[in-house]
Design a protein around this nucleic acid. Sequence first.
DNA 1: TAGTTGATCGTCT
DNA 2: GACGATCAACTAA
Length: 197
Amino acid sequence: MPYKKLPRSFYLRPTLTVAKYLLGKLLVRRLGTQTLIGKIVEVEAYLGEKDPASHTYRGKTKRNEVMFKEGGHLYVYFTYGMHFCANVVTEREGIGHAVLLRAIEPIEGIELMRQNRGFTTGDSDKNLTNGPAKLCEALGIARNENGTDLLGNDIFIAAGETISRSRIAESQRIGIRKGAEKKWRFYIKGNNFVSVS
DNA sequence: TAGTTGATCGTCT
DNA sequence: GACGATCAACTAA
């Protein structure tokens, strides 16, 4: 496998820096004998105590304890009674920051992703992974994956395309009320798989 | 094509 | 007891 797993140090930097550098990287998910890969094209940063929209704004609870782990872990939460969303934990242990993965571009294992999403022939791949809950379903990420170490082999992130500064767009985050004025959403300009809106 | 709403339940107040 | 870092189906125009 030519994929180069990102080192722990990648995740220990400031959250907004990690968020931007995650664009273009490859999210690799091993499911049994299969490998599913998607290129990260859209993310949002959640800055803990500085951020009223963050789950960790009011400190540590049973639900968000994974966000306080050392950078490089996966925080998966359940929401709206039916969906899961995946975050990459950043910064050193004790800091409750994370980056929400909002959209990926399918690269490998597309057939299995379609199967996981319940797609039939005719459904376009465009809607396969262009949303935080969609990508989780496509990659088989759920409650059980909460707390997974991204330096292990089940789920990790590998070097991919380098996205130059001029190709990164920033905007307000999607679907939140508090902290909505912060422009902490980043995506690759013109990519067909961003969730837009 | 834009806007609205139902589904569904864990977590925190 | 209220409400979400959402999605898909439906309605209206």
